[in-house]
Design a protein around this nucleic acid. Sequence first.
RNA 1: GUGGCCGUAGCUCAAUGGUUAGAGCUUCGCGCUGUGGCCGCGAAGGUUGCGCGUUCGAAUCGCGUCGGCCACCCCA
Length: 429
Amino acid sequence: MKKPKFQSPTGMHDILPEDQKYFKKIYDVVSSVADFYGFSKIDTPVLEDAEIFSRGTGEATDIIKKEMYILKTKGGDFLALRPEWTPSIIRAYIEHGMYNLPQPVKLWYFGPCFRYEHPQAGRYRQFWQFGFEVIGEKNPVIDAQIIQICYNILKELKIKNLIVEINSIGDNQCRPYYKKLLTNYLKSREVSLCSDCKRRIKENVLRVLDCKEEKCQIIKSEAPQILDYLCDECKAHFKEVLEFLDEIELPYNLNPYLVRGLDYYTKTVFEIFYLDSQSEKDIGNALGGGGRYDKLVKVLGGKDVPAAGAALGVERIVELMKKENIEVLEKEENFPVFLAQLGSLAKKKSLRILEDFRKSKIKIAESLGRDSLKAQLNKANKLNVKYCLIIGQKEALDNEVILRNMETGHQETIKIENVVEEVKKRLKK
RNA sequence: GUGGCCGUAGCUCAAUGGUUAGAGCUUCGCGCUGUGGCCGCGAAGGUUGCGCGUUCGAAUCGCGUCGGCCACCCCA
């Protein structure tokens, strides 16, 4: 019989105790910022009807074409592990009739997503996202405010050198015309394009703008830019978004080539990058991104309600915090007291003492499984406690404990009934 | 899905194709019958990711596979 050797599935990882502090820190910051801006938290099922994503996120996107985890239920329904949150939240908005609430409805979330991809650093099959959705408001100030919220959260996490790449990809009024124009232009230069771009012309023209292939750069630079072809409404909207960003002095880079991979975006799209302090270039993966999606609610069967939102990747932020040596204080302070015991009578009394401390909300550590005093003090030392209570056979019989100051080594004997008070007194000093 | 680099103890790493794969850290125990840190001694921990081949002999070479990283693709 072969010994089974299990490991976590490809691209999925344990979040070990030593990393929990980063997740908790991020959660706390997101939670308080969201609260300040008037967002309410929402949780949705990890599984959803797969069609929510194929209709919402879009059939043409990589996420839907090849990255969804889909399972068939015994009843024959197809459910998908969410590859992103937005369609789930819109589903909930519609399902619970949230258009009867004061608009806009502002929601935030924090939880895992799943995409079947080839994993790399900062790119996993199970990864955590948090984000914000504002549903029921078309005013461009919302677009700017969402960007500001993302930016503020990263700033509060002490991440510096951030840059927001921003663009507008128009709406149903103007984008079809631009796409036709771009297609015609690219077709006239098709011979000089890379093979991927030749394919993109047919499948998703806008993505050509995102190509990093050198020979495509020149063609790109002379291509018609969407900003020049926005309809009046989109143009005015985008101008206002930028004015709001200028007003709050948020550093952004107008990037006419920024095209997001999700189908539902209209007008504003943006991504947030970290600039490497040496090279001054953005490194690798976006920390987050988002934009406006005015048609999604309708597409998913709701009313014609405008919306905008953003999502950020928790693991990518954690990775940056580690790389930049950003200190995260352990919220959980160390144990101030340790209880060491010797002998069966003392062990029995220990349980009562521990209970007294718990009631008084003083954290007390122990190692009841160990019988050697030496081993117990060793453990106490590793926990860096200030005081150690020692109870042996003699003390147990006299209803006493020894209180040892671990810094000075000074010891005194006190009555068990006074021990909580005495420790409390000393910890206050 | 395509291509490249890499997998040795919990961690960081050694070991020309040649005895029984080693060291530091960590963990546990002993020195000290009831007193921590330091020190000394000791133990535990490995099918060298896994499988198949080449060879008298494989951690080392080959093929496959799994996993990690990188690029493409795309995004968080």
